[in-house]
Design a protein around this nucleic acid. Sequence first.
DNA 1: CTGAAAGCGCTTACAG
DNA 2: CTGAAAGCGCTTACAG
Lengths: 351, 351
Amino acid sequence: MAATIKDVAERAGCSIATVSRFVNGTAVLTLETRARIEAAIHALGYRPSELGRSLRRQATRTVGVIVPSLTNPVFAASVAGLQARAREAGFGVLIASTEYDPAQEMAALDTLLGQKVEGLALTVSDPLASPVLPVLDAERKPHVLMFNQADRPGRVCVTVDNVAAAFAMTNAILAEGHRRIAFLAGRFSTSDRSRLRYRGFANAMARSGLVPPSPTEVDFLIDMPDQAVAPLFEQEAAPTALFCSNDILALAAIGALQRRGMAVPADVSIVGFDGIALGRMVEPPLATVHQPAREMGETAMEILLAELREHVAERPTFLPFELRLGGTLATAPAHAAPSAPLVAQPQWRQT
Amino acid sequence: MAATIKDVAERAGCSIATVSRFVNGTAVLTLETRARIEAAIHALGYRPSELGRSLRRQATRTVGVIVPSLTNPVFAASVAGLQARAREAGFGVLIASTEYDPAQEMAALDTLLGQKVEGLALTVSDPLASPVLPVLDAERKPHVLMFNQADRPGRVCVTVDNVAAAFAMTNAILAEGHRRIAFLAGRFSTSDRSRLRYRGFANAMARSGLVPPSPTEVDFLIDMPDQAVAPLFEQEAAPTALFCSNDILALAAIGALQRRGMAVPADVSIVGFDGIALGRMVEPPLATVHQPAREMGETAMEILLAELREHVAERPTFLPFELRLGGTLATAPAHAAPSAPLVAQPQWRQT
DNA sequence: CTGAAAGCGCTTACAG
DNA sequence: CTGAAAGCGCTTACAG
């Protein structure tokens, strides 16, 4: 078995209290005691048990994080950012992933609360429908949403303004002369981000006097959106641009279109949302709305730390987004509808 | 504060032992006691503390996992697989990421051992150089390497045979008539996988009577391998194919080449390694060696569970890989060296 | 500068 | 069927 504080104390010929003080640097000790304890620790390979420590201190110095998936680099990046900040503050991070299944959210929360995490950062399917938020409220557990937008005024979240971002991007697409723009969306029921981005898109379309088309919803876990994309381009007036609610979808859509023999962006422009690294690597680079995912995790952890320290709820934080234009977003083909007067670009926070 | 077992016992008018038995279903209780305890638990929102439980049981039912990065979907997938199996077995998973920095491996291990994980699954930079493996040996901690190949006979790992896989893929490239093949590699010092794959590549080249070119090493964290790729294509006899040690690198290389005005695979064939989902989405699909990353995590967890149950070290497991040909791998351009007699395809495990 | 002792939230023989 | 009590590995007043 692993050595305990008792083993160290025995070997060093002192009390466990003294060992504890040495380990935590919480008292001044004789040079000699110090040396004996140090030797004992080294010889036994002693490592303090966070279990005993946490139980005694009534604080685990641990936070939990719940994300829909670790395989989507956007969430992975936020977790990485959160973890980095946590480490700096001496906090551990417990991660649970729900695989985009809302039904798993409660189980994940149960596990994390059982581990006595002091706070949580989470991205749920839909804050308005998630059962975990009320539980968090009832338990008065400090928590912060990432990527999601708040379901009510008092809720703390850190995200970008999805509606405004999609609105801005849609105007940029319109500015390239596109009029027939389709929206490819991750299922609304499993992503409020998707829904909010569609709303921004629809708002911008309407403001330009266009009728926003219904969204084409696709499941996240299907590799190929080929079937979803097909009907769009079999109709009479096919879209000249496709706004996808996230980058993975957008990259997949590019492949789907190319398999149909269409060129991007010559025939169809493609726009994504997220700003994953891979989008800048492909050629042409993916036009997208970049949101600072890693920073989102960092900010979430900072908010959590502040709440734990000061016992005061922080305020919702909107991080700036950034439009990455060009690349897969080009001017609408000449044979498309002639360009009409455009509305002014809306304002958005710029880095 | 959160309710404890004592609070429940008081409210239900029984001893904490009885509450414990109810919660764990470890004894038969009167219908009445059961009802009273259930009511108390519900009213107080009681959730057993894993801390107390673990301390008392002297078992945390938790494993740790160390990966180089969560942002690389290959590692994310293995973690997801491991987590799924762990959940089934009632185990928790603590995740630490080293950001491809070998120096962080020890710190990660310290943290996890402090949390008293019962076993570990890990991917280190290089098993031959990693300081964590000897510690794991000294502590007699059950552990299993993922993706890495073992540094010595007794070490348990689950991976694909990287040398054989790269050997097979290189022969497939040669079979397309390519003779000038470059190897773009993640830094050897931070990836034994990269080194082993190069070895398989070099073996295959040599066996075909060709002189294997030196690898072109690139840092993982640099987004654009454009600078690394440039010198290769500025020389007299530019390569007609590029074998990249992983898919992210391969996708980035495709972009880099296209930015240089070259077509893939018409001018240059590109081959990756890993088989990430995105590789199948892009057009043309990425030629690559697919390794079952998620399954690797699942298998790692199964091995760990077996070791924890039976206290016997399992044997190294090689999972089957699969060559995904076509797509970005095409026949060498006509003006390239004429094709020579080819060696027979080596055997490899096929799904 | 150091030690004895209480107690954090649990589980589990041992009794009855 | 249920309870009293010990003890898992720690930290921290309280003494001296």
